[in-house]
């Protein structure tokens, strides 16, 4: 589905005379392979290159070297740009800055309109997409009056209406309150489970990464760690060295374990913690 081979990208800073002033390597030799239907989380603190990577997945940026294949289409190939953007939809961080139209359903229709779908089919897709994100009741509303979580669900519906195989979410919950975050994550999980859409979730919330099948941890443009969430988070020292936290439960388990209490260190959820503690009693 998504395959990256030795991806490299550099931001080049120019001075007033157009000479190269500095080069910042945002992505440094990154390779990974995402299968159809996977749920991937990419973790990293600010400036780790995760957002730059996200923009590559949608062909908004092109790699300096290495290749990135989306459904076997090379993002460097200009002929495929629109097919790539249709099959790998993208949801951004700021819910306000990605809604274009003044009416919810017209915004959802924006993508299909751009790829030239005929009116009747657009109608069907808009209704379908709004139903999936449970926003049908708001079809005729103005997006200005919606909450952050609702706006972000509209943005997801806008991508869904293009019938993508893969959705990339670039910190979709960073600007939302806890209830909005939950709405969005529930929707994302539903899309992955029920509609078998490949999800690439870029985040710095560890609790969100726990839901993924596979986690990549990025630091300074490289993939520093990867594996299933349980393995990645149990490496508490490495995560801390990368200035990343682990989920609270995992951290507690780690501290308890260090204090000499016999408890597994790869706990992820509160239920698991409760179970393990009860077993000790």
């Amino acid at each position: 589905m998504v395959k990256a081979n030795n991806l490299i990208f550099e931001y080049v800073a120019h001075n007033d005379r157009g000479e190269v002033e500095g080069v910042h390597r945002a992505i440094d030799d990154v390779s990974f392979d995402v299968k159809k239907g996977d749920f991937i989380a990419i973790l990293g603190h600010n400036g780790s290159g995760k957002s730059t990577l996200a923009k590559h997945l949608n062909a908004l940026l092109k790699p300096k070297s290495g290749t990135l294949l989306i459904k076997n289409m090379d993002t460097k190939d200009d002929h495929h740009v629109w097919d790539i953007r249709q099959s790998a939809g993208m949801v951004f961080q700021n819910p306000d800055n990605q809604i274009i139209a003044t009416i919810v359903e017209e915004d959802v229709a924006f993508g299909p309109e751009n790829i030239g779908i005929e009116a009747g089919e657009i109608r069907k897709r808009v209704d379908m997409a709004l139903e999936v994100v449970e926003m049908t009741d708001y079809a005729g509303h103005s997006p200005n009056k919606l909450s952050g979580g609702q706006k972000q669900r509209i943005a997801i519906a806008g991508v869904l209406a293009m019938k993508p195989d893969c959705i990339i979410l670039d910190e979709p919950t960073a600007m939302l309150d806890p209830s909005g975050r939950e709405e969005v994550l529930k929707t994302v999980q539903k899309l992955n489970k029920e509609d078998k859409i490949t999800i690439i979730l870029i985040t710095h919330f560890m609790e969100e990464a726990v839901m993924a099948d596979h986690v990549y941890v990025m630091a300074e443009g490289k993939i520093a760690l990867d594996g299933i969430p349980r393995d990645v988070f149990s490496k508490v020292e490495i995560m801390k060295a990368l200035k990343l936290n682990v989920p609270e439960v995992t951290e507690l388990a780690y501290e308890l374990n260090h204090a000499g209490i016999d408890i597994p260190i790869d706990l992820l959820t509160i239920d698991e913690m409760v179970g393990s503690l009860c077993r000790l009693l």
């Binding site: 923009k55 949608n58 908004l60 629109w82 953007r85 249709q86 939809g89 993208m90 951004f92 700021n94 306000d96 800055n97 990605q98 274009i100 359903e105 017209e106 229709a109 924006f110 993508g111 299909p112 309109e113 751009n114 790829i115 030239g116 779908i117 005929e118 009116a119 657009i122 109608r123 808009v126 806008g158 991508v159 293009m162």
Partner: peptide
């Protein structure tokens, strides 16, 4: 900053001007 974000979001949703564009409501 908003304009920049919006341009990116529009491009990500395959916006490429009016040519070949259809409309939901005619």
């Amino acid at each position: 900053r908003r304009a920049d974000d919006l341009a990116l979001a529009m491009e990500a949703r395959c916006y490429r001007g009016g040519e070949g564009r259809t409309r939901l409501k005619q």
